[in-house]
Amino acid sequence: MSRTSRSRRAPRAGEPCPCGLPAVYGDCCGRFHAGQAAPTAEALMRSRFSAFAVEDEAYLLRTWHPSTRPARVEFEQGMRWTGLEIEAVTGGSPIHRDGTVTFRARYAYRGQPGEMREQSRFVRHEGAWVYLDAIGG
């Protein structure tokens, strides 16, 4: 896999980041999509949400633990991710080896609004944070 990613819907320079933080995409999740390592599990979670929003398959695969990584990431036609709310974080700091992030993600699927809730587990792999799996949903 390449170190940098190409997405089909990357925001233009100066546009807000899909993850919801008050920053532009390039200064927020875009830098992680371009190859910089996320310093915390929460930052990785936010950048993965943004990767789903911009359909950046390479980034999603690169930040997925090899033991649970699928061969491909399929993007649902008609799905648009519209918002992210972080509810809780345990561990996942620069000094931890694992952590969880509980979140709510809002979307519109073929014009109909929806929401999913998940607690994601993250671990360090070769020094970098990666997504391991979800607990519940």
Rank of each mutant, 00 (worst) to 15 (best):
E15K: 06
G14L: 01
E42K: 05
A23I: 03
V24E: 11
F32L: 02
A34C: 08
A34K: 05
C17I: 02
P22V: 03
T40Y: 13
G35K: 10
P22F: 02
R31E: 06
L44R: 10
P18I: 13
M45H: 01
A23Q: 15
P18W: 02
A38W: 07
F32I: 00
C19H: 10
P39F: 13
C19F: 05
D27Q: 14
D27V: 08
A41P: 08
P39G: 09
P22T: 04
A37F: 02
E15P: 08
C29E: 05
H33Y: 07
A43M: 11
P22S: 12
F32C: 01
H33T: 06
E15Y: 12
R31L: 09
Y25V: 05
A43K: 06
L44I: 09
P16I: 05
Q36G: 03
P39D: 07
A38K: 09
G35P: 07
F32T: 00
L21C: 04
G20Y: 02
R31W: 03
G35V: 08
G30W: 08
A13D: 05
P39T: 06
A13K: 10
F32G: 00
C28A: 12
V24W: 02
A43I: 11
L44P: 11
A38Q: 07
P39W: 14
E42Q: 13
E42W: 02
H33W: 10
A38T: 09
A41Q: 07
A34H: 11
T40E: 07
G14Y: 03
G20M: 00
G14D: 08
G30Q: 09
G30R: 01
T40R: 07
H33E: 12
L21I: 06
C19K: 08
P22H: 12
E15C: 11
Q36A: 15
P22D: 15
E42L: 04
Q36H: 13
L21R: 13
M45A: 14
Q36K: 13
A37K: 06
G26D: 15
L44N: 10
C17N: 12
P18C: 04
L21D: 08
A43N: 07
G35N: 04
V24N: 03
A38H: 10
R31A: 13
R31F: 00
G20S: 00
L21K: 02
F32P: 02
D27N: 10
A13C: 07
A34R: 15
Y25T: 04
A41W: 03
A37R: 07
P18M: 08
A38F: 14
R31C: 09
Q36F: 12
A23G: 06
A37P: 15
G35R: 11
P16R: 14
T40H: 12
C28G: 09
E15I: 12
V24A: 07
A38S: 15
A37S: 15
C17R: 00
M45W: 02
C29M: 09
G14W: 00
T40K: 09
C29G: 11
A23P: 00
E15H: 14
G14P: 06
E42H: 05
D27C: 05
A41F: 01
E15R: 13
M45Y: 03
Q36S: 14
C29W: 08
G30V: 04
G26W: 03
R31Q: 15
C17Q: 00
